[in-house]
Amino acid sequence: MAAAAAAGAGPEMVRGQVFDVGPRYTNLSYIGEGAYGMVCSAYDNVNKVRVAIKKISPFEHQTYCQRTLREIKILLRFRHENIIGINDIIRAPTIEQMKDVYIVQDLMETDLYKLLKTQHLSNDHICYFLYQILRGLKYIHSANVLHRDLKPSNLLLNTTCDLKICDFGLARVADPDHDHTGFLTEYVATRWYRAPEIMLNSKGYTKSIDIWSVGCILAEMLSNRPIFPGKHYLDQLNHILGILGSPSQEDLNCIINLKARNYLLSLPHKNKVPWNRLFPNADSKALDLLDKMLTFNPHKRIEVEQALAHPYLEQYYDPSDEPIAEAPFKFDMELDDLPKEKLKELIFEETARFQPGYRS
């Protein structure tokens, strides 16, 4: 834990890192770190609560700039109880001085990944967590956004079992017609939660990839272990087919990539493993919904509104309290091709509203 900075004593240090967030945020305490930044909790002297502050230093890398800009653009436009918001952003007053960006968010005690390492969940908890994931996802999908990296560590939890989806750095506007060349190379989302079509096709992607990830998360809540822990690309596919069985001819016809289709045709026939054999203690309604989410063919996979209306979630289902976005989200430009200098300018502009004396 960093010592509390005395008023006016300059930035606090946390594990050798400068955290320049005073005077409003003090009493910093280390939480963890990701690929390009550290997260601390801090005391907000204005709202009198502890908050989470993520320090991001992305400006050396085009990919990190892209992810940072995506996350900020999306989260500043989203407003939903099951999606983490941005409360404040701290950065230098000029673009030349801006080396880091500090993002202030609600402090959540833990995440689903940490929880599943230590606790076996009751059916009631599984049901409530799944409902909140789908409630947040309904809003995301209504904005025409794909999260693309749903996994237990991106689901934040607090002691009252509130759940918030975080990390929109890989999110995209849904565009089933656009052929994202190089899709697989830039697709760094965790393999275990990846839909089979991501490994088999490169053309376009749809909201059904997020539903697949939610199915993987439900299976993990039922058993405290990942359902498809593939060691590499082909191993991942083999794990999936080992449980779902061989795809039907109709399902194979959806695979545009001939090499991928021929690979699947070359494999020995596998039978589907019954879900109640894998999860003998699970609620039968939970397994019915799991089956509809972990469907090989993305066109037959359940959609988020149908999933919310499934009998497993009937005690929570309330369409009048499951809000959607006001308007579909649009990125003005494809960020993939922009140089990091341009992305830095866009991050600077996007964060201006939090600067003292800002006038829109």
Rank of each mutant, 00 (worst) to 15 (best):
Y312K: 09
Y36L: 08
L115H: 01
E345N: 06
A5D: 07
C65R: 08
L155H: 03
I211R: 13
K342R: 14
K54C: 01
H239P: 11
G16P: 09
L343G: 10
V273I: 02
P176M: 06
L241M: 15
V188W: 09
D175T: 03
N27D: 09
V273N: 00
E96C: 03
K48F: 13
I209E: 12
A52L: 06
T26Q: 12
Y316M: 09
F59Q: 09
Q306K: 04
L69M: 15
A286I: 00
P356Y: 00
L308S: 02
S208Q: 05
T68V: 04
L244G: 07
L146T: 04
A2W: 00
E322R: 03
Q236L: 15
Q97N: 05
L290E: 11
N154D: 04
R194K: 14
T185Q: 12
M98D: 09
L218C: 11
Y102C: 12
I83L: 10
L134A: 08
L130K: 02
T185G: 09
F183R: 06
Y187G: 01
P298V: 06
Y43C: 11
K138F: 05
N201L: 07
L335M: 13
V273Q: 02
V49T: 06
F228Q: 02
R15W: 15
L137G: 05
N123Y: 15
I83K: 00
K99C: 04
V101P: 03
G242V: 11
P176K: 10
I95A: 04
Y64S: 10
I86Q: 08
G357I: 00
P298D: 02
H180L: 15
S360A: 14
Y43H: 03
L218H: 09
N201E: 12
E109S: 03
G230T: 00
G8T: 06
T206M: 12
K330Y: 00
Q105S: 07
Y30F: 14
P298T: 15
A282F: 00
P176I: 07
Y102A: 04
I56H: 11
S57Q: 03
N238P: 10
R172Q: 14
C216L: 09
W275M: 14
R301C: 06
F19V: 15
Y358C: 14
T110H: 04
P311A: 01
P176D: 08
C216V: 09
K151C: 10
K207W: 09
M98Y: 10
K114S: 13
N276T: 05
I302P: 09
N276S: 12
W212S: 13
R194P: 08
K285I: 15
I255Q: 11
I133E: 03
L237R: 04
S246G: 02
Y30R: 10
E109T: 03
A2R: 09
N281E: 10
L28T: 07
H141M: 11
R77T: 01
I90Q: 00
A9L: 05
L134E: 08
C166T: 09
P247M: 03
R67I: 00
L134V: 10
L222M: 13
H80P: 04
K231S: 01
Y43W: 06
S223P: 12
P268C: 05
R261S: 12
A195K: 03
S122F: 04
C216Y: 13
M108N: 04
K164Q: 11
G34Q: 00
P311W: 00
V101N: 12
R225M: 03
Q315V: 00
T206S: 15
V273P: 00
Y187H: 04
G357P: 01
I56E: 05
L234I: 13
D100R: 01
V46G: 05
D235I: 05
Y113R: 11
E322Y: 01
Y193M: 08
N201D: 09
S142H: 02
I240E: 05
L170I: 01
T118W: 07
V46Y: 02
E322S: 02
E349H: 02
P229C: 04
T26Y: 10
H269S: 03
Q17L: 14
A195P: 07
Q315S: 04
Y193T: 06
Y25T: 01
S223A: 14
Y312H: 03
L313A: 09
I103P: 02
D336K: 09
H310I: 05
L244S: 08
A189G: 05
E326L: 06
E96N: 02
A6I: 08
P298A: 04
Y43K: 02
L76K: 03
N27A: 09
G8N: 06
P226W: 07
E322I: 01
D283P: 01
Q119A: 10
R135G: 02
K48A: 10
I56P: 08
A327Y: 01
F129M: 07
P93R: 06
R194Q: 12
F348S: 12
C65I: 11
K99A: 11
K270C: 06
L287C: 05
Y205L: 12
Y102I: 05
I90K: 01
G16H: 10
T295E: 11
L157A: 12
E71Y: 00
T63N: 04
Y233F: 15
N47M: 12
Q66I: 00
L258K: 05
K117Y: 07
C40T: 00
N45S: 07
H269V: 08
V49G: 00
K164S: 08
Q249V: 08
D318F: 03
N257D: 09
I133P: 02
N201G: 06
N87H: 08
M38H: 12
G182T: 12
R301D: 04
Y358I: 13
A325I: 04
L252F: 03
V21N: 09
A260W: 02
P356I: 02
C127N: 06
L69A: 03
D167G: 06
N276R: 08
Y187D: 12
V304N: 01
D88V: 09
K203C: 12
A143H: 06
G22R: 14
Y317V: 00
H141W: 06
R15Q: 13
L244P: 07
R15A: 12
F296I: 15
G215E: 14
A325C: 03
M333V: 02
E250A: 02
A219Y: 12
D251A: 13
L130Y: 03
G34N: 02
A219C: 12
D149P: 03
Q315W: 00
L170N: 06
I243W: 03
E60L: 11
D283W: 00
E109R: 06
V39W: 04
G16T: 02
H120L: 15
Q105R: 09
M333G: 06
R70L: 14
W192A: 12
Y205P: 04
S122P: 05
Y205Q: 11
W212L: 15
Q132K: 15
I198C: 08
L121F: 11
L252T: 05
G204W: 14
L107I: 09
F296R: 09
Y312G: 07
H61E: 01
E220F: 09
R359C: 01
L156V: 04
L308I: 04
P152C: 10
Y102W: 02
A282V: 04
M293N: 03
I90L: 02
K164C: 10
C166E: 06
A260L: 02
R225S: 15
A327K: 05
I302L: 13
T159Y: 12
K99G: 11
Y316P: 00
L115T: 01
P93H: 04
G8H: 09
G10D: 09
K54R: 07
I84L: 04
S153Q: 09
R77Q: 13
I256V: 12
V214G: 12
G245L: 11
Y139I: 08
L290S: 06
L346N: 12
V51T: 01
Q306P: 04
I227M: 04
D175R: 11
R70F: 02
A282Q: 04
C161M: 08
P58F: 00
S153N: 11
D175Y: 15
I72K: 06
C216I: 05
I256Q: 13
D337N: 15
A3Q: 04
L163D: 03
M199T: 01
S248K: 05
A286H: 01
S208I: 02
R261N: 09
N154C: 06
K203L: 13
P319M: 12
Y317T: 05
S213H: 05
I126C: 12
H299T: 13
L107M: 13
L252W: 04
F329M: 09
P356R: 04
K54T: 08
